[in-house]
């Protein structure tokens, strides 16, 4: 065989490899296109119509968005999403950091604790919600039990039926299943911290808190910032726990954008208006991600 023939042969093999490669990627791409990309594009268009889900579809311009900004229930839901974000950025992050820091300081039993904290995270939302609806029930739960035995009254209330407590109660249940996951993420990050840094800090007379603040936290910053981004995104999209426990009630007291969109689309049959809420939720994700990317561009090592 001549040199050119060899080259041609090699090139043909390369082309075959390229075509084969594209064939291998095609099914995943195609499925994603059908299930996510095309419906998302339709959703963007649907938000400018008065479609109910059946029958005629009329273009109504920005009317859905005008309605959205005057809709008291939507604003309530949005506010609840913001409160939810604040709650999740504080409580589970604090629990996760504390637990991971303590856990990284021990050797014996580390595996056991890690598994124990992670278990609620693998249990389905329908079961976790059942569990807490049972334990926080005003008739059979821990509230009346604590009241009877020890006179502790603060839990002896119908948490999920109360306008003041429903949102906090649902957020607590979701948080209970989530904080262990954060803990394991932080633990993995902390195990990568150079032990010598701690020894240097100890020699400088740093206590536990000072070591945590000046060695641990800066070292795990990428993970920390990333979890903050994920929590912000998820808090805008939350659905399961709220829908199952309260359905957004009582009287919208625990309504979030996710439950409002769902009932608007599938129970009140206002597909167009619900699509507008969907765009708003996508915007939430885009803003959170954009902020993250911007911080990175500005030179933050995250």
């Amino acid at each position: 065989m001549t040199a050119t023939a060899l080259q041609q042969e090699a090139q043909r093999a390369k082309r075959r490899q390229q075509i084969g490669g594209w064939l291998f990627v095609a099914p995943v791409l195609l499925l994603n296109l059908i299930v996510v990309v095309i419906p998302s594009a339709i959703g963007l268009g649907m938000a400018f119509t008065d479609w109910s889900g059946v029958g005629s579809m009329n273009f109504i311009g920005l009317a859905n968005f005008q309605r959205l900004f005057q809709d008291g229930v939507f604003f309530k839901a949005l506010t609840h999403n913001l409160l939810w974000t604040a709650f999740f950025l504080i409580v589970p992050v604090a629990l996760g950091l504390l637990g991971a820091y303590l856990l990284s300081g021990i050797k014996r039993g580390q595996m056991f604790f890690r598994v124990a904290y992670f278990i609620p995270y693998v249990i389905a939302a329908v079961v976790n919600t059942q569990l807490w609806r049972y334990l926080l029930n005003p008739r059979v739960g821990i509230g009346p039990a604590l009241s009877q035995c020890c006179g502790i009254e603060f839990l002896n209330v119908p948490v999920f039926g109360s306008r003041d407590l429903a949102l906090l109660g649902v957020a607590f249940v979701d948080m209970w299943h989530f904080w262990g996951f954060l803990l394991v993420l932080y633990l993995a990050a902390m195990s990568g911290v150079d032990i010598e840094l701690y020894e240097v800090a100890r020699l400088d007379g740093a206590g536990r808190w000072a070591q945590f603040r000046h060695v641990t936290l800066p070292s795990i910053r990428p993970t920390l910032v990333f979890t903050i981004l994920m929590i912000t995104i998820w808090s805008g999209l939350v659905f399961d726990y709220v829908f199952i426990i309260t359905g957004g009630g009582p009287a919208n007291a625990s309504e979030v954008m996710g439950t409002l969109l769902y009932t608007t689309a599938f129970q009140r049959f206002e597909a167009g208006y619900a699509a507008a809420i969907g765009i708003f939720m996508a915007l939430w994700v885009a803003i959170a991600t954009g902020g993250f990317v911007l911080l990175r561009k500005l030179g933050w090592e995250v």
């Binding site: 959703g43 659905f239 954008m257 969109l261 689309a265 597909a271 969907g278 939720m281 996508a282």
Partner: peptide, 12 residues
């Protein structure tokens, strides 16, 4: 990263 809420209604 696309939230389910953006495409679930048209998909349905």
């Amino acid at each position: 990263g696309v939230p389910a809420q953006l495409f679930i209604i048209p998909l349905f």
